[in-house]
Computed example of a mutant assay.
Amino acid sequence: MTLLVVDDDRNILEVMSAILPSLGYEDFICAESGEEALRLIQDRQHEFSTFFLDIQMPGMDGIELCGRIRASLEYRNTPVIMLTAMKDKAHVDAAFLRGATDYLTKPIDTTELGARLRVAQLLHAEQQRSMDAMRREQILRFGMNSAADADMRFNLADPIAIYDVPRVIGSLELENYLHRLSRIKRFMFGAIGFRIDKPESLFTLTTPLEFHGILTDVAEAIFETLRSYDVIISYLGNGQFVALLPRTLQFDEEQIEVDLAVKLREYGLVEGDTVPLEVKVHVGKPAKMSMFKTDPQLMIARALAQVDGDKSAGSKFKNSFLVA
């Protein structure tokens, strides 16, 4: 597997070219622009396992390039690590919302780079060992025959990716995003948990394609309900979502639940050939960080635990939250 490093600064490319072999990564390619990187990807002469993208480049910047990479089914889940000298939250947010997995700040620290890259490579290897990822995505997006559908079934607990819904990122991306923020910036967030009612029944009564469609509709309903706020949404598995919002906002969870029900009714969530599925989403009270406890996994666990007072939901999430 090949690494692709993209940066318009030749000094950074020289630094990366010296560091990567010292960490045991000899197979890598450097590109000096987003356009050059895109040509390398489209030529298909190499299979890339991790991308390093500079955020700020002339022409096609790293954020746009990240979006182009994510538009390809082949690289929909491949780790993308952004390189940035900026601490501007808006740029970091934009990168994660276009599909970035993680980010590194310049100047590049060898130990930190090695740690992030090991996590990225483990993630890629796990994805390669799992059921054929390409075929699985094609099933979810386009559908296949029932035999293949059954063969590629995912588990209810899997935090599967939700595509093409604004402000939605993966659970790993959410984890990395929060952990890379400073303590003060994390303190500025609050979280609201969402849980689909009786997800086990929905999961049992639907095919993977149908269940993925339900999750996509719920994610879109959450976004539409909260779209006037600076929201970030993630699906965490087991029918659970979390939304990050500015902590200063005041919310009426009962009203959000009503608004969600209206949206879901508009979407006409009736799936399957014969069985109409009534999808209901429960909303928890907002959870906020304290100045002295800014552990993001604790805040998200509390948000999930406050959905109908479901204490087990929060503890399950906290136990499964992997720190990169």
Rank of each mutant, 00 (worst) to 15 (best):
D27F: 02
L65N: 02
E47T: 08
I108C: 05
E271V: 11
S72D: 15
E271C: 04
P246L: 09
A18F: 11
P58M: 10
R68Q: 15
E175D: 14
P79A: 05
L322C: 12
T206N: 08
N155E: 15
A221M: 03
A161I: 12
Q56P: 02
L97N: 14
L215E: 02
Q306G: 11
V231E: 11
A313R: 01
A303K: 05
A147E: 15
L304N: 02
A133Y: 03
G67D: 12
G309L: 07
R118I: 05
A313T: 00
D149T: 13
V279F: 00
A313N: 01
R136L: 12
Y177M: 08
V275H: 13
M16L: 05
G99Q: 10
M60E: 05
V281I: 04
I184C: 09
L38F: 13
T111S: 11
I69W: 04
E32M: 07
P79L: 03
N145P: 01
E74M: 11
E175T: 14
I162H: 03
E175L: 10
A303F: 07
L140H: 05
T105M: 12
T2W: 12
M299G: 07
R118N: 10
R135A: 14
L73H: 11
F96K: 03
A31W: 01
I214F: 02
M131P: 04
A221L: 04
T110M: 14
G114S: 06
S22D: 15
S182C: 08
L83A: 01
F52S: 00
G67C: 10
G170D: 13
G193T: 06
L209V: 09
F51M: 00
F28G: 00
A219W: 06
I19H: 06
K87M: 13
V281P: 00
L249F: 15
L156P: 06
F251R: 06
P296E: 10
T204F: 13
D88E: 15
K311T: 14
Q138R: 15
D158P: 03
T84R: 04
Q56L: 14
D149P: 02
I300S: 04
H179S: 11
M82Y: 04
E126R: 14
K106G: 09
E253L: 09
D132V: 08
D273F: 13
L104R: 04
N155M: 14
S312E: 15
R118C: 07
I196H: 01
M289R: 06
A85F: 09
D132I: 09
A85L: 08
Q250P: 05
I139F: 11
E126K: 09
R76M: 12
R136C: 11
R98W: 09
L202I: 06
L245R: 08
V281Y: 00
A303V: 09
V165T: 14
P79T: 03
K285R: 13
N155T: 10
L65T: 00
S17E: 05
E126D: 13
S315P: 01
H91Q: 15
L83K: 02
Y235I: 08
E137S: 10
A115F: 14
V231N: 11
S290M: 05
E253G: 09
D158C: 07
I108N: 05
E224L: 15
K198M: 06
E126F: 10
V242P: 05
K311H: 14
T105Y: 05
F48Y: 12
Q45T: 05
L298D: 14
P276M: 07
L40Q: 08
P21L: 01
R70E: 13
I192H: 04
